[in-house]
Design a protein around this nucleic acid. Structure first.
Length: 431
DNA sequence: TCTGGGGTCCTAGGACCC
DNA sequence: TCTGGGGTCCTAGGACCC
């Protein structure tokens, strides 16, 4: 038995905690560069604003709707998320943090009234953090996801489901016929694991509801699609196939990629950007105590522009696996130079670390490379200083030494303060 | 003017091995 | 007409997730 705890309109809700005046207004949170909507309040959804909708189009289409747009404040959301996960963990013995606003909780061995218990957690999230959340409970993770979906729909359209579910729905507590009714009322594309492509293929076969999907023969589904969809079918039938991942393994690849605030054409600016991305990626790598053997760098022009297009990537193998910012940045720049072509307007670049292993294993090797000794102390010192004084306090010279704003830096013109993580930004309450 | 970022898993096909 | 039979490993690409 699983529960899925999910923060409603998470980014918008985080913003509303510190700016209650946003309550009741259509609010959207924008992606990096204020590009498109990645979170919407209920009011914004009601207007018909879609996930991923470009902001410049939203402004054009809804000039008078009073939409409030905010730049994504990921530092705030990350901090609110960890507080939320701490509270949600009390629901059961095991927790899998599935995304910034969702976690699964294993309910094995949890006695008593699960719905009542879930409501208690929900109330805590609301009272202690000011975050609204929905909780779905089901026999499998896929059913818990569906239950959460049902709980939300029931709030939006009261009376359209078997009982008034509030923000909590326990599908495992329903009689089989009621579960079938819920499945029959759910479009197949709303099921976890059914994306756009498979949705279309299923519809072409006449499978449009979750109930129809649940009634397909698993072995046929495996043959026609894959084991992935087969698992979804079995999970809908109540047979658990996807376990709880409460100790996620270290990342196998680590990426840092960004679109630029402005197109850039010259190599030095690209080198600056790529060096910075490489440093960020190396930082993440060191956090999991890993080393990477390969560095991939890519650059491309904007697929949305009519101009000349160019996209390329290069993979550079390091002399030996490393988490050293300088070595990784050097590798990235070397790769960049091998693919850079002048005369294009570059819109995006990125660095990915591949072939990741554990640092301990490499250090166990013979120390034949005295001259290549890992600068682990230097790196810890850099990480420590950046943690204390803010990201970028120390950086590699090729990532740009000046204090001036880099011209390619992303736009974030509408960002709110870092209320919970920056002393200077802490809200002050006045009587 | 203006279209995100960061992941996972699975599969097919080729290279290579005995 | 016809050319073994397994394996493993690696990579690229596709699908999905939030």
């Amino acid at each position: 038995m699983y529960a899925l705890v999910d923060g409603n309109n998470f980014y918008v809700s985080c913003e509303r905690v510190f700016r209650p005046s946003l309550e009741g207004h259509p609010v959207v949170v924008l992606s990096n560069n204020d590009g498109c909507a990645i979170a919407r309040s209920d009011e914004a959804k009601a207007l018909g604003i879609k996930m991923g909708h470009p902001f410049f189009k939203i402004r054009k289409e809804f000039p008078n709707a009073g939409i409030i747009a905010l730049s994504a404040n990921f530092v705030l959301y990350g901090d609110m998320s960890s507080r939320m996960m701490g509270i949600a963990a009390a629901l059961g013995p095991n927790q899998e943090i599935y995304s910034i606003d969702e976690c699964f909780v294993g309910l094995d061995g949890v006695g008593g009234d699960l719905v009542r218990r879930a409501h208690a957690i929900r109330n805590r999230l609301q009272c202690w953090l000011g975050l609204p959340a929905g909780i779905g409970i089901g026999q499998t993770k896929t059913l818990a996801k569906l239950a959460n979906h049902v709980a939300k729909s029931a709030v939006r359209k009261p009376g359209s489901y078997p009982e008034d579910l509030g923000y909590v729905c326990n599908l495992a507590g329903l009689p089989a016929s009621d579960l079938d009714a819920v499945l029959a009322a759910t479009p197949v594309g709303d099921i976890w694991g059914v994306g756009r492509k498979i949705n279309k293929q299923l519809e072409e076969m006449g499978v449009t509801t979750a109930l129809q999907l649940a009634n397909l023969e698993p072995s046929l589904v495996r043959k026609r699609w894959s084991v992935v969809l087969e698992r979804t079918v079995r999970e809908l039938q109540g047979q658990p196939c996807i376990g709880l991942d409460d100790t996620p393994p270290d990342k196998q690849q680590i990426a840092c990629t960004r679109s630029f605030g402005r197109r850039i054409t010259d190599l030095p600016s690209l080198e600056e950007a790529v060096s910075l991305f490489a440093s960020r990626a190396a930082e993440k790598l060191r956090k999991q105590d890993g080393v990477a053997a390969q560095v991939l760098v890519f650059i491309h022009t904007s697929p949305f522009s009519d101009g000349k297009q160019y996209a390329n990537s290069a993979t550079v193998r390091l002399l030996r696996p490393s988490s050293d910012t300088l070595r990784i940045a050097q590798g990235a720049v070397k790769g960049l130079r091998s693919i850079y072509k002048p005369g294009f307007d570059y819109a995006k670049a990125g660095v990915m670390l591949l072939d990741i292993g554990s640092a301990g294993v490499v250090q166990g090797e013979l120390d034949l490379f005295a001259d290549m000794e890992e600068r682990t102390d230097l790196m810890s010192a850099i990480d420590g200083i950046n943690a204390k004084f803010g990201r970028g306090s120390i950086r590699v010279a090729s990532a740009g030494a000046g204090e001036q704003k880099r011209e390619w830096q992303m736009r974030q013109e509408l960002r709110t303060p870092r209320y919970t993580t920056n002393l200077a930004d802490i809200p002050i309450a006045r009587a």
